[in-house]
Design a protein around this nucleic acid. Structure first.
Lengths: 135, 135
DNA sequence: TTGTAATTGGCAAATAATTGTCATTAAGGG
DNA sequence: CCCTTAATGACAATTATTTGCCAATTACAA
């Protein structure tokens, strides 16, 4: 049996405090979070939270299309709310605190950069430097 | 003693066929290469080439500023000639063959996307889709 | 050609990130 | 309030990548 959204939807979902703590972390952060950031932030609500559980909750939220993975250059994967991910946007990476932030807007005009014969399907832009707190 | 370019420059450098095979791979590919791609391509010149040696040669070329690392989203690091890296450019990632290609040109106008108080230092753009061979 | 030391390559070991296992806990329907 | 079983968390195990080690090889200066 495939592991996926359908199965999860059919399966009973318990509203555990661990799940809530991770959800709260996404809501309150308002930016893409790594597994470790999620663990740290959600642990403030629930100090007994295990890293193993964070991995499992993240997988479950992914399967439920509640969050989406954000692959970034040079750092580990981040996750963000699907409601945010569904709106085209980009990210800013602070090289000092290693946090990622959402950037709204897009330069556009990228199709003219694509070589002859190539088929453009998506693009990712990462600005980097210092965030307001670190600057 | 620090491990760095200065030391390497002072140390005798032997023109081994392994080093030449890796250099040739960079020259003939004309695109950023992963460790495994380097190993595969250079092995066509020199079938005895060990992966361990590729790691070492890449490190040495980095220390000598002959090549630079290219961090990309969702895939392992690539390396490209410093002469290419020094000219601002971006990359295209083929999701079918997993190869990266150089893109010349840049959309520009990114500073207006930066949030108030943030300091923009660099940016990375990755287009993705299908390369000409896969399309 | 010879001597020396840089280089190589196979394998083990160190890293780092994620997952399997399983006894225990607890959510929530009845 | 129970009872069933989903969920948790500690730990071991796995996976993937990179590096340490060292005997054998080889570049190249003398």
């Amino acid at each position: 049996m495939p592991h996926g959204r359908y199965l999860e939807v059919m399966t009973a979902q318990r509203q555990t405090k661990q799940l809530q703590a991770v959800r709260n972390a996404f809501e309150s952060a308002g930016r893409p979070l790594s597994i470790d950031e999620l663990h740290q932030m959600a642990s403030e609500d629930l100090d007994s939270l295990g890293l193993r559980t964070v991995y499992r909750v993240v997988r479950k939220l992914q399967d439920a299309d509640e969050i989406a993975v954000v692959s970034v250059p040079g750092s580990s994967d981040r996750y963000e709310l699907a409601s945010v991910a569904s709106k085209h946007h980009h990210h800013f990476h602070c090289t000092s605190c290693d946090r990622f932030f959402d950037i709204h807007g897009c330069p556009g005009g990228l199709s003219k950069l694509v070589p002859e014969g190539f088929k453009l399907e998506r693009h990712d832009l990462t600005l980097s430097g210092l965030c307001d707190a670190c600057a």
